[in-house]
């Protein structure tokens, strides 16, 4: 009888709890430590809690001109890279999803190449080429290198999104008088919209936090937020500068997450990956 069976929820899921604890320790604990450091003025060994909290280092960090210029630069870079990437990749993704042309599959998988090999080697090789082209240390040099990093997301996810749009909907739009371009703009794009928004968001946030390319190609003229943070951490003995910057860096991803939850809803990311 059902009544004699042990109720499943009565059992304690030790494995699940174990995973939860491990994840909390690995992710949340460092975040708490960094967050605490950002609001600490004095914290000496062997104390477990800081001796003195305060906003002194926030004042000091935020009054630095290089922090503000790095933040502005990072936002500009992420915006430009994401827009360019969308302009290039979305039509390409549509072509991959809806058309057959010679070399289609090879080209499609070639976008994996940038992620299939150790990235640093690739970046060094590109840096050598950029040096010849006088792109090292320029805004557009960094835009180009970061653009490469977004290609995979911005092609693969939209391809899945476009493929899942009902072709009859597109035909119905042609039937009432819409040109192919108008069909793409008014029917296909809105239908694939939530999933594409997910790709754009990933692209923006990924670019914002991108460090290797920005550092290798951008140095010394271009300093983005993450690059600045690394410089702070490497060169300054004051831990709080780095901590304040990393708390500042949480802001865009937090906003992005909130936006994603509101606009995209569940399932869109999964659908984007062909789920």
């Amino acid at each position: 009888m059902a009544a004699t069976l042990p109720a499943p929820r009565g059992r304690i899921d030790f494995v699940g709890i174990g995973f939860a604890i491990a994840l909390s320790v690995a992710i949340i604990f460092p975040l708490i430590v960094v967050g605490t450091w950002a609001f600490t003025e004095v914290w000496r060994y062997p104390n477990i809690v800081p001796q003195q909290f305060g906003l002194r280092f926030w004042n000091q960090t935020l009054s630095r001109a290089d922090v503000w210029s790095a933040l502005t630069l990072s936002l500009q870079l992420s915006t430009v890279v994401t827009l360019l990437s969308a302009a290039i990749c979305l039509p390409a993704a549509y072509a991959f999803a809806r058309m057959t042309f010679p070399g289609r599959n090879v080209l499609f998988f070639s976008f994996l190449a940038g992620h299939a090999f150790p990235k640093f080697g690739l970046l060094v090789a590109i840096a050598a080429i950029f040096l010849q082209l006088n792109l090292i240390g320029t805004f557009w040099g960094v835009v180009l290198i970061q653009l490469v990093g977004t290609l995979l997301f911005m092609i693969w996810i939209p391809v899945a999104a476009f493929q899942s749009v009902d072709r009859r909907m597109e035909e119905a739009a042609r039937d009432v008088g819409a040109s192919p371009l108008r069909v793409f703009w008014s029917i296909t794009l809105p239908q694939a919209g939530p999933t594409i928004a997910a790709a754009v968001l990933l692209s923006f946030v990924g670019t914002f936090y991108e460090t290797e390319g920005a550092w290798l190609i951008g140095a010394p003229g271009i300093r983005t937020m993450p690059v600045l943070m690394i410089t702070f951490i490497n060169n300054q003995m004051v831990i709080q500068y780095g901590a304040v910057l990393s708390v500042l860096l949480w802001v865009p991803s937090f906003i992005a997450l909130m936006f994603a939850r509101r606009v995209i809803g569940g399932g869109a990311f999964a659908r984007g990956f062909g789920g």
Binding site: D166, M169, E171, A172, A173, R174, G177
Partner: peptide, 20 residues
Amino acid sequence: LPPEKRPTGMVFQSHALWSH
């Protein structure tokens, strides 16, 4: 003539309404 230039109107089996 492409579909958008033809004086025809089609109703599909799957109705193909634009859900957005």
